[in-house]
Amino acid sequence: MKVLVTHPGLQHSHQMAQALHEQGLLCQYWSGVPVRGPGEPAPWWLPPSLGAKVREVGIPRALRRHPLCFPAMLKLGLHRRIGLNRYLGMSQSAYAHRVFHLFDAWAARRVEALRPDVVVAYENSAMRTFEAARRIGARCVLDAPAVHRATAAELLGLQPDPYLACIDARKDREVELADLVITCSEFAAQTYAQAGVPSAKLRPILLGATPPVNVQRRRTRAGTRFLYAGGLTTLKAVDLLQQAFAMVRAQVPEAELAVAGGGAEPGLAAALASTPGVTLLGALPQPALYQELADADCLVLPSRFDSFGMVVAEALACGTPALVSERVGAKEILREFPRAGWVVQVSAQSLYDRMLELATVRASLDEARPYASLAGEKYTWARYRSAAVATIATLC
């Protein structure tokens, strides 16, 4: 069996491709965002800030293709610089979707020549690729990193419009064509089941993390240090976190909140910056993020909904306990290791109550660290790769 993995960006597709290569099953890995092999430099044309983020894989160069023309306009901001969005009458989100659809068409034209046995493709960039795969008798695996689009629309309060209807139709067609739909958590799989997707198609696989070997905790601060890492958006409930921490800080003046991430929605960065005790770290390369995770007393991820929440696994891998909302898929790790963190409702009050307790009774955090390490030792990328290969093998 030979498997093609294709993704217009990256996400965790390189881990899927790596897993298949390790078992001799990968025939090609096509990704818009480049990766590099051991000892390979980052592409020379990438700015240093992006070059530092290029992931390393053990996949030979001969098995990798990176059609950079698609994501380059997004990553380098060229569509904004030349005013292409305005010229085409598209929002930034619509423009991004169109890039994914172009990548899908690019991959579809090449699938029939490659003739793989199985194609693994990703949400909103798989429809044409799967249609081509079906024409040659290949099996189709949809790797869905988000919750089902109906759940997302409900939780976000999205109003129907022709453009959204077009995107939804593509996503529904992808699910229809797929032999298997891999989700990042049971929480995400349930949203597909609720939308009528047969349970026989659904395969939840929790993601993982593997920190650099040189990351060591360097605790020097007296007060409790909370850390948030991710986009500064209301979807991630950063607004609720800011409100909760402001109340905690009023009660515990030595408490701190470090915020790592970019892409701030209007007003959120300013609200955080004006809150005493908050430090804005900006977007960090992976090694620097792992160090911040190791140095923190507790990760906080209060998302309104999150299919998984990669940073939770990364924090646990560093031995740092996590506080997450009930709508974060990674809560399943904490259900298995309940002493490694805490799950709360999506509200500023619930966040405040738990954060105040942790800031006041530091022993709870100290007691949680060994259990966080145990959880992190289990939920590694090696575990994910093993589960991914086992899942793909069921198509034989």
Rank of each mutant, 00 (worst) to 15 (best):
L206F: 02
L299C: 04
R139M: 05
E357Y: 09
E112S: 13
A94V: 00
S185Q: 10
Q18K: 04
E336Y: 00
V312I: 14
H148Q: 11
F245K: 06
A105Y: 02
Q28V: 00
A363L: 11
Y29E: 09
F100M: 14
P34V: 09
Y163M: 01
Q286T: 12
I82Y: 13
S303A: 15
A200L: 09
P160T: 03
L395H: 03
S386Q: 15
G196K: 05
Q345F: 00
T360H: 04
Q28E: 15
L281A: 09
A260L: 12
F187K: 00
A178I: 02
P43S: 08
R135Q: 12
E367S: 09
A270W: 00
A165Q: 14
P71T: 07
K236A: 06
R225S: 12
A108R: 08
E314Y: 10
N214C: 05
Q216Y: 07
R110Y: 11
Y87R: 14
A271D: 12
G282F: 08
T210Y: 01
S125L: 05
R219L: 12
V3Q: 04
G329N: 04
A105L: 11
E123C: 03
G376K: 05
V238S: 10
P211I: 08
E256V: 03
G230L: 09
V141E: 04
A19F: 07
T234I: 05
V99Q: 12
A146T: 12
A294K: 06
I82E: 02
D172R: 15
A375R: 01
M127I: 02
I167M: 13
L180R: 13
R149K: 03
A237N: 15
F337S: 01
E22M: 03
D295K: 00
C27M: 08
Y163E: 14
K331M: 11
K2Q: 14
G329A: 06
R335A: 14
M73K: 08
T224R: 12
S91W: 11
Q190M: 07
Q243G: 01
L395W: 03
Y87M: 07
Q345E: 14
A388D: 00
G376F: 04
T6Q: 11
A17M: 09
P47T: 10
Q251W: 00
A372K: 13
T210M: 01
V361A: 15
D172Y: 09
S93Y: 12
Q291W: 02
H101I: 05
V175I: 14
H79L: 05
H148E: 06
H7K: 02
A144G: 02
